[in-house]
Design a protein around this nucleic acid. Structure first.
Lengths: 342, 342
DNA sequence: TGGCATAAAGTTACCGTTAACGCAACGATC
DNA sequence: GATCGTTGCGTTAACGGTAACTTTATGCCA
């Protein structure tokens, strides 16, 4: 479907020229009144500002961006918007960028590689000052495009891999290991992994690897995996846990790929009459706001999302100002609650 | 702080001219190969595409937008990103818009009116094809700017008030009334309202009004309000509920402004030894993904966010194509769970 | 074989803004 | 009083792309 603005004629938005004409100065003087106010007589400036106010003038940044060398868009590419996974990151990132007059342009790939390529291309076409993107694992063409764009690229959330430019995040394999070691420390022996693992969710796969490695190191039997491609939800968790325990009744601990899934797992266990944490331990990931409110309260891992947002903003500004690229590790914390302490 | 691109010289991103030169045709032919492929010889088109691929050419939409009459940005202004409040709306909206090659530019006002003005101005400066914004209550200057922009403006989430152009949402006062009537129907008599109500959260205020009106109609005593300006969270809910019951032990039902707050209220009641739903009923708003997973499970109101996103996208496309402005009512549902059924 | 429609490419102007440069008016300097 | 640096503004030329128009090549028909 093609989309066009209705009729060109009707649109009559004011330009610098409208202001200039009204005040009786050149276009450039009006531009200067905006960009370099001190170069314009205060009295004239007042007239110009009044005219702008009156006509509801809004600068055209398409033109500004094309003409000037600077851009104030920052492209932000996330893989999901559901369930607060990255919302807090975007939130802090955006408000931090606002202080530098940088505007966020958002894209959501929904864990789809084709979509990612398309969206990155689309964002780059706006000639952003920088791009922040979730993850360090991207299709080759995406990497190529991002590199060719010749702007700061900040990869967020994950640091375990090859970085294009600058990364702000943490090593997900270690998270998985921490989950496993905690469960093992509590005496659990037959571990399972449950959740929504999208094909392109490399972070989930890394956490699983960490989990498996730690279990192997401890001499435990292989971790039983039961995952699905569809998005995470309590309903999914409930289904997966039920199916899992039907096939593997020996399981005594379940690590979930997200808290939302863990909520459903807890519900399933309640229905099956398995006591948590006595019979089965459950650990989540993400520190959903409700994790402390379900019962039993959920042991989980809290990534410092606010800090990722903040550090990403800092990295963007630093890199725009020609600082060297770097990797900023971000803390995360295992929050131990009732669901794993027996 | 001023931000500039490092050194103009170093940047060497390919333009249509680079492609044209390489293939040995005019700039315009390359442009046509993109915009109107059938007007270019297939053999030549192939060469052009190859050159674009090779040089990693990405069209410059600043230039395109300035030159052409169309824009494919849709500005989306939300008041919050926390706790899935609007994340699902953005998610569906974005993927629906993607099918029409429309790109989302996101802004988050955090319930701040000054910020709203600033962000709307910033978004309009990109000459978007349309703007979607949360709520129908905006500062006068914002309304003026949006009207002057002469593009489709879709107000989402709320319909109870004066609409600029087109609205997609529901009447929040009726939600409040439904909450009250449900509680009353369950035999609760001393109602309270608890939660985070930001100064500019007109929707929360409307729900409260509906709640109060329904209580008054039923001949109940005035609703006790205990709110805070800070953002909603379980911790806030816990604190507010504790303080509330200290001062008003007679309260036997609490309506919360959001589910996240309700989660904290439930926790407070557990600590205080008040049984839910027997001693006190609790109703939330928003249908947080965990609402069915806390215990007792939470009675709440589920706004159809996916539908709002979808209908907003439809409205945008329709209005861009000159359809008349309208108001689309969106369904919501009272989900009755354990927390109010005694 | 001339005339004419059509296809395929080139030319030119313009979108709104900014940067570089130019120039007049004026006060300070020696 | 000629020189010079400021201040304050105007002029002009981009930025990269698109649309309207023009030109050239090609095929078809009478």
């Amino acid at each position: 479907m093609t989309i066009e603005l209705s009729d060109k004629v009707a649109r009559n938005v004011p330009t610098l020229a409208s202001i200039a004409e009204r005040v009786g100065v050149s276009v450039n003087t009006v531009s200067r009144a905006l960009r370099a106010p001190h170069t314009v007589r205060i009295e004239l400036r007042r007239q110009i500002n009044a005219a702008m106010e009156e006509l509801n003038y809004v600068p055209n940044r398409l033109a500004g961006g094309l003409s000037g060398t600077r851009s104030d868009i920052v492209g932000v590419v996330v893989t999901s918007l559901y369930y607060s996974e990255f919302a807090n990151i975007i939130d802090t990132l955006q408000s931090a960028l606002l202080e530098h007059d940088l505007q966020v342009m958002l894209a959501n790939t929904r864990y789809n590689a084709d979509q990612e390529l398309r969206l990155v291309r689309s964002i780059l076409s706006w000639r952003p000052a920088a791009v922040a993107i979730i993850g360090v694992d991207h299709p080759p063409k995406v990497v190529e495009l991002l590199k060719a764009a010749d702007i700061p690229i900040i990869e967020m959330w994950d640091t375990g891999g090859e970085v294009i430019d600058t990364a702000v995040g943490f090593d997900h394999a270690r998270v998985g290991a921490a989950q496993a070691n905690h469960l093992i420390g509590q005496g659990y022996r037959r571990l399972a992994f449950v959740g929504s693992v999208r094909e392109n969710d490399k972070r989930a796969q890394k956490r699983l690897s960490g989990l498996e490695a730690a279990a192997a190191t401890a001499g435990l039997p292989d971790i039983v995996k039961h995952t699905a491609q569809q998005g995470g939800s309590p309903e999914l968790g409930e289904r997966l846990a039920t199916e899992l325990l039907e096939r593997h009744p020996e399981i005594d601990a379940i690590a979930c790929n997200s808290d939302v899934v863990a909520f459903g797992v807890l519900r399933a266990l309640r229905k099956l009459g398995r006591r948590v944490p006595q019979d089965i331990g459950v650990v989540g990931f993400g520190d959903n706001e409700a994790a402390s409110c379900v019962s039993p309260s959920l042991t989980t891992v809290r990534p410092d999302r606010e800090r990722i947002g903040k550090l990403t903003a800092e990295a963007i500004v630093a890199r725009i100002n020609d600082a060297k690229s770097y990797t900023a590790p971000v803390e995360w914390e295992l929050i131990v609650r009732e669901s794993t302490v027996r």
